[in-house]
Structure formats: C-alpha cells, structure tokens
C-alpha cells in the first residue's frame, strides 16, 4: 500500500521554503552584525578619589646594577599609581557578564619584563591559555615566582632567569583575578598577572582604558585594582556606538 502524501503538505512545502530562506537571510545578516563593528567597545577612565597613599621608596642598594638604573628617579612601590590628573593606572577592566563571543583569541604575545628590579608592566593582563613571555632585561638573576591561589586551578611555579637567558614561555590554564608574582631574590619586587576569559583593558598612566571588538549588547564590567579590590558597572554597547564607563576608587 502506497502512503499518500496529504495535499495540504504539498501546499505547505513552498511556503516553508520561502520562510526558511527568509529566516536564513535574517540570521546571516545578524551574524554579519555580530562580527565586531568598528568602534564597538567600551572606553573609559579610572580615577582615584582622595589623597593617594604614600608609595614607599625602594632601597635597592643590595642590587647595585638595579640601583644605578633608578639613580635619578628613585624606585617606589607601585600599589597605587596615580597620574597627575587623578587617573589610576594598572587597573584591569574586563567583562564579567554578558560576553557570549566564546574564547577570546589573543592578538599578540604579551611580555612581562623584569627591568630595574621591577616588573614591566606592573600588572599584566592575559586571557586563559594565552602564551606570554617572561624576559629579564637586568644584569642580575631573578627568580620568577607566580603564586596563584593555593589549591586552585592554576599552580605555582618558580624558575630562575639569569641575565641574558632566553625568554620563558608561560601560560595560565584558568581564569584568576589576580595572581601575585614575586622574586625571592629581590623581596621588593611585586607584580600581578590578571587572567580573564573575556575582552579586557588595562588602564594607562592617565587612567584611561579601552575594551575593543565588542558586539552590541548589555555587559557588566569589573574593574580590579590590587589595593582597592573590585568594582562593577553595567554598560550597553550599541551598534557602531562605543559605550563609556568611569570607575572611581576611594582612597583609603
């Protein structure tokens, strides 16, 4: 017995086709729109409200080669670095909610340098599984000793890097805000690795930061500063219209 296709179904076929094609068109257009439009992102500034805490001078006399580098501008601690107009540097601003773009592909291999017995940059932002280089520009040995949260998904390691050694290739497998990095030979050395899985920006000397390549949408931003902790803020990015955000940390 042959199964009969109902007449109504045959009628329905072209209709379904048309609807399907229309849907595909819309979706493909949407996906074009979802690709990062130029200017889609967040720009902003991080400020400090109040008198910045005194940054202590660092006595590097035990390490003459580094002391010589800071002869004219004595090195200080970098827990709170404020520019002339109140901008707060070394703050990592990242998307903590609303990101649906999947894994962020790293653009360039970041470098964490040891220079003048200090870390440059003081705070390094990286994304999960992004390879970064640790270099030593000094005439002295350093041991690079990142200390992730004990028992967490990232693990402590400790490698020596004498002057002239090749860069150390490193990678963090999991998100962590933030990993303290120290050098046991030079106890004043202190830096951070901020490992995120979404687009981020790090504030410069003027406190300004920029997060690029964001599709339109609603996002929660989190700003992390090593002394003052975190702050969050919601922003809306419209197509071709970058959002702005201002974070203000209160000096304690």
């Amino acid at each position: 017995m042959r199964r009969q296709i109902p007449f109504k179904a045959i009628l329905f076929l072209p209709v379904a086709l048309v609807v399907g094609i229309a849907l595909m068109l819309v979706v493909s257009q949407k996906s074009v729109k979802a690709a990062p439009p130029s200017g889609g992102g967040v720009t902003g500034i991080v400020k400090l409200d109040g008198t910045p805490p005194h940054q202590k001078p660092i006595d590097m006399s035990k390490e003459p080669s580094c002391a010589a580098i800071h002869k004219d501008h004595p090195a200080t601690t970098e827990n709170v670095v404020v520019g002339s107009d109140g901008g707060l540097a070394n703050v990592v601003v990242y998307i903590s909610e609303g990101w649906s773009g999947g894994d962020v592909t790293p653009s360039s291999q970041p470098v964490f340098d040891q220079k003048g017995c200090q870390y440059q940059p003081h705070v390094l932002g990286v994304v999960v599984n992004e390879h970064f280089k640790v270099t030593n520009s000094d005439q002295t040995s350093h041991n690079i000793h990142p200390m992730p949260k004990p028992g967490g998904p990232n693990h402590e390691w400790n490698k020596s890097q004498p002057p002239g050694s090749p860069p150390i290739d490193a990678v963090w497998p999991a998100e962590e805000v933030a990993i303290h990095v120290k050098c046991n030979i030079h106890p004043w050395m202190s830096g951070y690795h901020v490992v995120v899985k979404t687009p981020y920006g790090v504030s410069d000397d003027k406190g300004s930061f920029k997060i690029e390549n964001l599709p339109p949408g609603n996002y929660t931003l989190t700003a992390w500063q090593e002394t003052y902790g975190t702050q969050t803020q919601k922003v809306t990015v419209a197509a071709g219209k970058p959002a702005t955000a201002t974070f203000t940390f209160k000096a304690k």
């Binding site: 490698k159 020596s160 050694s165 150390i168 046991n184």
Partner: peptide, 14 residues
C-alpha cells in the same frame, strides 16, 4: 627542578 612552595627556583631552563 627547584623546591616548589619555597623560594628555591628551577634552573633547568638555564
């Protein structure tokens, strides 16, 4: 290999 958890680093790379 160094002694992890202490200041003693690994020298294997150098």
């Amino acid at each position: 290999t160094g002694l992890d958890g202490t200041p003693m680093p690994s020298f294997a790379d150098n």
